[in-house]
């Protein structure tokens, strides 16, 4: 419990560092975040860490359940009258319940974001930006026109209207264009092999999060009618509340868990006990608080 718990504390810091980037909105911030999400999803070192995290969560939960079952068996006949508050904190006695709530939250949370990002076969919105192209409207009058473009992983831009998208890959010709070529030259022409892939886009996790917690329907780049299928979440408020409450649950779990892990590992020393206790309390308050601020800010501003 202690080792996996402390590893998960480290995971929380990493996760929080990523999430805090969501507090920034705007083209640059959106691009930076989506690039970061792409890096996190593809880097081999991060992949190893992510599997370690899944294993830790599972082991922490299973070990917790086994220990709880043993502990319940250790007192077959309950006391008729108990006064546990006189000698211990309620959250230190409720780690199993708090942990179960957190596990439920993790499942929901992974379904909200992780599943969409990594597993689901449904196409996910890709990162788009607006580009301004000068165009001569009439003699001597030049106007900027807005062109929506995908930003590719190799740093180039491709106009949304000129490519077909499969998953997150861009293909040069639309099927319409292939048909045109066929009609023009040779009705039996079949393009050799695959339609050439010209690049890959970034999954737009930033907009997914903003649409999830934002309650206003219209958003720059992301509207209800956007073909990416993103629209503001009708249930944004209940979800924001769910996330904030879950973070409060996490805070109490950590309030006991952080220092408890050190004790279980035998790391108890008169010189450092106070430091561990203070660090644990600070960690338990600051980390969940910062996590909880993000959906609230998005809800209030979007």
């Amino acid at each position: 419990m202690a080792l996996t718990g402390l590893f998960l504390c480290v995971f929380l810091i990493g996760h929080l560092a990523g999430n805090l980037q969501l507090l920034k909105d705007g083209v640059e911030a959106k691009r930076a975040f989506n690039e970061y999400a792409h890096f996190m999803g593809t880097n081999i070192f991060i992949k190893v860490l992510s599997y370690l995290t899944y294993i830790s969560i599972l082991f922490h939960a299973i070990d917790g359940i086994l220990l709880t079952v043993q502990n319940k068996k250790a007192r077959p006949v309950k006391y008729a009258y108990e006064k546990p508050n006189t000698n211990s904190k309620w959250y230190s006695r409720s780690m199993a319940v708090l942990g179960t709530l957190i596990l439920i939250f993790i499942v929901l949370h992974m379904q909200h974001f992780w599943y969409k990002m990594k597993v689901s076969s449904a196409p996910m919105a890709l990162h788009t930006e607006n580009m301004y192209q000068p165009r001569m409207v009439s003699q001597g009058v030049i106007e900027d026109t807005v062109v929506k473009v995908y930003y590719t992983t190799n740093g180039s831009y491709v106009p949304v209207s000129e490519v077909t998208v499969k998953g997150k890959e861009f293909y040069n010709n639309t099927e319409e264009q292939i048909k045109q070529i066929q009609n023009q030259y040779d009705p039996n022409y079949q393009p050799k092999g695959q339609n050439p892939k010209i690049g890959e886009g970034y999954k737009d996790l930033h907009s997914v999060v903003y649409a999830f917690f934002g309650h206003n329907k219209s958003d720059e780049g992301v509207t209800a009618t956007d073909k990416t299928g993103l629209s503001a979440n009708k249930y944004a408020l209940p979800f924001v509340i769910l996330y904030v409450v879950s973070m409060a649950v996490l805070a109490f779990h950590l309030m006991h868990g952080f220092a408890s892990a050190f004790q279980s590992l035998g790391l108890n020393h008169r010189r450092y006990n106070k430091l561990i206790k203070i660090t644990g309390t600070a960690f338990a308050i600051i980390v969940p608080l910062l996590f909880a601020i993000i959906p609230v800010v998005i809800y209030l501003t979007k």
């Binding site: 043993q70 250790a74 007192r75 000698n87 211990s88 230190s92 006695r93 006991h256 220092a259």
Partner: peptide, 8 residues
């Protein structure tokens, strides 16, 4: 049972 460090 097992110790869960409640300190009671």
């Amino acid at each position: 049972g097992n110790c869960t460090n409640t300190g009671a």
